[in-house]
Nucleic acid binder design. Structure first.
Lengths: 337, 337
DNA sequence: GTCTAGCACTCTGTGTTCCCGAGTGCCAAG
DNA sequence: CTTGGCACTCGGGAACACAGAGTGCTAGAC
């Protein structure tokens, strides 16, 4: 049904429409891409493509525009990811290498991705549940309060103030710290709950009330942060683009952690390191937008996801190239630290 | 030159224009606000106000619109801050009280302020330089690396990985930690640099190389973070409003920490707890916007600033009320923790 | 059978004109 | 000083025409 020339026509339509933002007609197509056929032939092919639902015309006497289905075919079969230039790769490397801590890595990554793609970039913080405990620290604040600081192997730090049920002195705190660390050090965070359950038995009776309080806070921290933090950048890039769904909705979704989470999460597949693309209506929440995302993290240890969000009419090959490259570099940086 | 009635006319123009977003004419004015004079009289007053530069007309045959100077007079002399309703105050209180740590306080505050004012809210993180060291923690990562964690009395945590010039064992680290803490505990962060300068003398010679590295990182952390982090929320509220300067510029400024910093910082006066308002062109960076800001923090210990940014045409009394109230509550919360 | 050229048709977007109405400034009278 | 009256201005919307791009269809060429 769709011979090679028809596919070439579809590809040409997508490319032209992406670059000009105007419905593309048969004449311009036949000229600009050397298809070696006349506009009339192109028109016949276009009619066929429209019949199949790959393109559509906004008005009777206008050119054609790709549909979501058309973009899908383009992404799947007609395009290949465009690698970044050497200069761009070097810029990424040096920019990310300058990061001083995890927050900074995430911040730089999201800014970088936004600038590179000229879209809105979204980065999820590395998942706690897949990381392991590197250290638990208890800092006495006064005689009934300690600050609990949890440090993970990804360099992440979580902190909570814990109100103790009884007065504890410095030595008791030091003792608790030692016990906690010996039990938890190196554990995956997901296995902490079980450990916590039988931890009290190993403690001296007088330690138990304080320990129980601390452990419950620790658990709470883990559970609560399970739905991970997510950041975005590049909202200014939305200013030019026009969304069918309205700019306001997009901005609202960006600030709503939960929605953003879903948008990024839904793209997750069984091979998390693969690039996933959701186009327009394929997207459950924000219909008018497309999302290009991928997991990051070294090898089999996938930490979280990152990607960009933009109008359906975006340059997929370039965007995919940038997302993939940034994911690789940030994985590398995180593995090294 | 400006008698009471002219001021009343100006106030009426501002109020009407803010609520309708349309140039307001003499007839409508005379009717809606019971000025007890005829439209013709109002016209004379308007002519005088325009002569003085308080109002202007977009086109020859249109109504009047306040100028920046007009808004300024309105804010300074014609309006009074509108307090929040009891329900709103309760909502603020319960929402902020639920925060679990400093990040959460800031995050909730900025979201709250955005929702309350239907503008873009901006909150600066509490300033490090005004807080004091509560604890310095060194966590061994491997034999040449430690994580430096700095905890302040405001509950803020800063972290850095430090690469040491030599191999250090656990006991050495513990020793360094003890020394650092005894020196720095309770110090204002601004006085740290001097302390750091003569600290090496108090150390055993074998500690000096490692200590020097750690201290330099500590200093770096303080200096670098001196220009503070700043967050915003409510960008979706910009979608409706129209800015003379273009939506894109505003979004860009919001993501540019430095610019945002300046915008908020420039509003700072000798009495930081006072509400400051910068209207349109008074604002050095983003001309088309107004900023309502205030300091927060308990009493004389001002921690940082927060505020909202919106179109010049905003409801100043309501916005000012919201900013003031939120600043008070967040100060309260921070003082308690 | 597939491609091409020609032709009539259908739109949208743009430029023009026209007119209404809101709003103003000014003047003379109360 | 205030007010009613009046002529004037100008923006914005409606009606209209028109050019141009693009299409679908059909008949002929390879």
């Amino acid at each position: 049904m769709l011979d090679d020339r028809k596919l070439a026509v579809l590809r040409a339509i997508v490319e032209d429409y992406v670059s000009t933002n105007e419905p593309v007609g048969s004449k311009a197509l036949a000229e600009r891409h050397n298809l070696k056929v006349s506009p009339a032939t192109v028109r016949n092919d276009m009619a066929a493509l429209e019949e199949e639902g790959y393109i559509t015309q906004p008005h009777t006497s206008a050119g054609r525009v790709p549909t979501d289905k058309g973009y899908r075919l383009f992404v799947d079969r007609l395009s290949q990811v465009k690698p970044l230039s050497a200069a761009e790769r070097r810029a990424i490397e040096t920019f990310l290498a300058g990061a001083v801590d995890l927050d900074d890595v995430v911040f730089r990554t999201v800014r970088l991705l936004a600038q590179l793609t000229r879209q809105v970039a979204v980065v999820q913080y590395p998942t706690l549940t897949r990381s392991t405990v590197r250290h638990v620290e208890l800092v006495p604040l006064n005689d009934r309060r300690v600050m609990l600081v949890l440090i993970t192997n990804t360099g992440r730090v979580e902190q909570r103030v814990v109100e103790l049920p009884e007065v504890v002195d410095e030595t008791r705190v030091a003792h608790l710290r030692a016990v906690l660390n010996s039990c938890l050090d190196g554990c995956g965070l997901s296995s902490v709950p079980e450990l916590v359950a039988d931890l009290p038995e190993r403690l001296a009776p007088e330690d138990r009330p304080a320990a129980a309080t601390i452990l419950s806070v620790l658990l709470e921290t883990l559970v609560e942060r399970h739905d991970e933090k997510i950041v975005f950048a590049g909202a200014a890039n939305l200013a030019g683009a026009d969304f069918t769904t309205g700019l306001r909705d997009v901005l609202e979704a960006l600030e709503e952690q939960v929605v953003l989470m879903r948008l990024l999460g839904e793209t997750s597949t069984d091979t998390p390191s693969a690039l996933t693309v959701r186009i327009g209506s394929e997207n459950p929440y924000l219909r008018g937008t497309s999302i290009v995302a991928t997991g990051y993290g070294s090898g089999d240890n996938q930490l979280a996801r990152l990607g960009v969000l933009g109008p359906t009419r975006m340059d997929y090959p370039v965007t995919m190239g940038a997302v993939r490259a940034v994911a690789r570099y940030v994985s590398q940086i995180l593995a090294a630290s």
